[in-house]
């Protein structure tokens, strides 16, 4: 569970974003990307000194200006559970075919290494296989 995948999982969740300049934004996450750029809706913006407040319908924050984000505690549990379910689903759907695929892999590797053998050839083959 990488930090950015946690952020992705936090969509539609409330969060607090503090920028490097100390300003904070309270709102619900609408969307985010791999640069940590985010959009929030129903935002309360607070100045760095904590003395001024603004209410914004929606706002966009460039990822590079962010210091940290505070997200709901429960989010980590939710994400862990989702991940487990995804892993289980993946295992059961792969189930039977996994064995035969493995066997094919071994025979191919044996043939390449022992009979045809050239290193270039071997490397190319492995790339295509994966």
């Amino acid at each position: 569970m990488l930090p950015l995948s946690l952020l992705n999982a936090a969509q539609n969740k409330p969060m607090l974003v503090e920028l490097k300049n100390g300003e904070t934004f309270n709102g619900h996450l609408v969307n985010c990307d791999n640069f940590m750029n985010i959009t929030l809706r129903e935002v309360y913006q607070t100045s760095a000194e904590g003395d001024k407040f603004w209410k914004l319908k929606e706002c966009y924050i460039r990822g590079s200006t962010i210091k940290y984000l505070r997200v709901p505690d429960q989010l980590l549990d939710v994400v862990k559970e989702e991940q487990n379910r995804a892993r289980e689903a993946g295992r059961s759907s792969r189930g039977g075919s996994g064995g035969s695929r493995g066997a094919r892999g071994v025979s191919q590797r044996g043939g390449r290494g022992a009979v045809r053998g050239g290193p270039m050839r071997g490397a190319r083959g492995r790339g295509r296989g994966a």
Partner: peptide
Amino acid sequence: KRGLYLIRGEN
């Protein structure tokens, strides 16, 4: 108490 943090590495 502050809870769950996601901290940007730069900081």
